[in-house]
Write a protein that binds this DNA or RNA. Sequence first.
RNA 1: GGCCCCGUCGUCUAGUGGUCCAGGACGUCAGGUUCUCAUCCUGAAGAUCAGGGGUUCGACUCCCCUCGGGGUCACCA
Length: 473
Amino acid sequence: MNTVRTRFAPSPTGFLHVGGIRTALFAYLVARQANGKFVLRLEDTDKNREVEGSAEHLIASLKALGLQYDEGPDIGGPYAPYKQSDRLDIYQKWAQRLIDAGRAYADPYTPAEVQKFREEATAAKKAFLYRDHRPENPPAWDGTTPLRFKCEPKAYAWHDEVMGDLSTGPEVIDDFILMKSDGYPTYNFAHIVDDAEMEITHVIRGQEFISSTPNYLNLYEALGLERPLLATMPPIMNEQGNKKLGKRDGAKDVLDYVRDGYLPEALVSFIATLGWNDGTTQEVFTPSELIAKFSLDRVGRSGARFDEKRLLWVNGHFIRELPLDELAKRVEFFWPDSAKKAEEAYRHRVLELAQERLKTLRDLPALTSYFFEEPTRNDSLVSENKQLKKLEETEITRLITAAHEALERLNEWNQDTIQEALNQLLETTGQKPGTLFSLIRIYTTWSPFSPQLNGTLALLGKETTLKRLSVAQ
RNA sequence: GGCCCCGUCGUCUAGUGGUCCAGGACGUCAGGUUCUCAUCCUGAAGAUCAGGGGUUCGACUCCCCUCGGGGUCACCA
């Protein structure tokens, strides 16, 4: 049995969004699961569309999600180079083979002439086929015109690892362009050559390629190549579900999700379960679970919408599952500035209180700033509070003062002693917890919400707590 | 328009002829955890399985048609 080799072959024409990353993820999982190799190949044969810096961006995105490849343009490998623009001689060689075999020929038409053929077909409500205009005696190819594949039209039936059995008639087979007049190969040609040269065993790609697959099958035959296993992914749709998710309608850069405080493993689990599940009721998967359980034949065939709400839930789930030490490392860049001066151990304890409240790491400052800096008094928190708005000003002062006194008497300052003091305070003041505790919380944090009161005060410390409670008068 | 693919709660999905008047999760709503937010727990609403024909003793599951959605028909990938 040959080693499984999968590849992710993006073109460096922009950032990597969640739709693209899923293909990469599945290719990665298939390779890891089989103890095979995952290859990154850059398909940079369209110099007009190439975007400066996007190759680096692509690489950074894969690494951010932990999809480490074994061979690639930046790390090399046994089948280098991994950038198509560095492999032009290879395509040239394979093109020559087709020419020699009489299976490729120079396109003698001007672009305008081809365009005219196309318009005629459209006017006749027919699909355009170049081969209907195949020249009888094409000139020798000198590299300045497109080189076309001389196809052999026929019906195909083939198996797709995800889509199942597919078939088409001969009417979809055409003389597509192999080499462009600028000397670069087309995707259609280059990927087949490269997959063969790089001994790729599984071609995992999006469904936009499904209709050209019969043409690829035809080319494999002409080249005498055994075709790899084919797996076609269903599209990821936008939130409205009416279009393939694309950059134009809100598909976000995966690195933006990381910057916004999403955990890589949450992104990975969420994206994997967009169209795949293991058949049980398990909803979230760690990366190693995915490697163990993933299978192409359990990938669904219909398009799935990208639901941010669910992603948020998955992210919160992973945040809560993280050991505190690990979470501390992950939030390093998300602390508010004021926290950076605080001691590590203190930050750790704040984080512990915040952990179950975080949906994204980015929520951290809003949830914890009052532990590190003096909060800004905001009386609307009192006046708009259901329990507190009916309290007289003098009553508020009385309660805060009483709280100050009761807490000031404490010799030991911890959650338990504080809770005890608060409980006694309920009795002596005759107030309900909903009133008294809310009031104390607001005066000590000036935040719309905070962790449980005794824990908050314990962490704030006696000095800070008393100071904030004496602002009352 | 031709060709190809797809169609189960708002969303992600389980379901491969009977155990499904359809299960789980997100979201929503209600309640509980001495206060808020979150977590956690409990419960509720929510799908005539796109529609119509078949086949069958019996169809979400098989076949056909219709409708809806998507993809493709580039010297883009």
